[in-house]
């Protein structure tokens, strides 16, 4: 994966396949501590200890289990390559939390990429799932909350092309407002 936004698109698919109703994604740029932290948290079916142990094994091929894609070992390798790490916590029946920590200024850190396109694609592909996206730079934060959007949209589904377009523009402009770049 070329950038973090593509990793997000990929690993959120795991959450959706695990039957999540709400997926929370947060990306925190902490330049002072030289850290970039990505958290994906869902309320899906979760994994038992055995499965959890296997998904963090880079040699585990996920073709046998539908819940997890090849994406997690990719993400773990990307984080580890910047002096960071990826950890997963999961509770069967309650959900899964993936946290990836990157060295912000590390030369091998993948760029953040197009989070606007990732959120638009997620909303377009999974109109039945809610997403809460937060990106923080220092003390300022941008939030996209599809639960709030639904209240305003009523019977209009989130995958309506005009709504997907709204999401893409809102994220792009919101991230510019908080001074977040695609790097």
């Amino acid at each position: 994966m070329e950038d973090l936004s593509l990793h997000v698109l990929d690993i959120v698919e795991n959450s959706v396949k695990a039957g999540a109703r709400l997926v929370r994604v947060s990306l925190t740029e902490d330049r002072r501590q030289d850290r970039l932290v990505l958290i994906v948290e869902d309320d899906g079916s979760g994994m038992d200890a055995d499965t959890l142990a296997r998904v963090t094994d880079p040699f585990f091929t996920t073709r046998t289990t539908r819940k997890v894609g090849l994406g997690l070992p990719f993400l773990k390798a990307a984080a580890a390559g910047t002096g960071g790490d990826m950890t997963i916590e999961s509770t069967p029946g309650a959900g899964t939390r993936v946290e990836a920590v990157f060295g912000y200024g590390h030369i091998d850190r993948p760029p953040i990429g197009r989070m606007d396109e990732t959120m638009a694609a997620l909303v377009a592909c999974h109109p039945g799932t809610d997403f809460l996206y937060r990106q923080r730079v220092g003390s300022v934060e941008y939030i996209l909350d599809t639960q709030e959007m639904r209240k305003m949209l009523g019977a209009v589904p989130l995958d309506t092309p005009a709504v997907v377009d709204w999401v893409r523009t809102d994220v792009a402009e919101g991230l510019t407002d908080i001074g977040a770049g695609s790097y």
Binding site: M1, L6, G69, A121, P161
Partner: peptide, 23 residues
């Protein structure tokens, strides 16, 4: 197709291009 293979190969701009044209 939006699995890991599709996303890595560039499925996201393809999907959004279709959505944009439809809009």
């Amino acid at each position: 197709g939006m699995a890991t293979c599709g996303i890595a190969a560039g499925a996201r701009p393809v999907l959004l291009s279709f959505v944009e044209e439809v809009k």
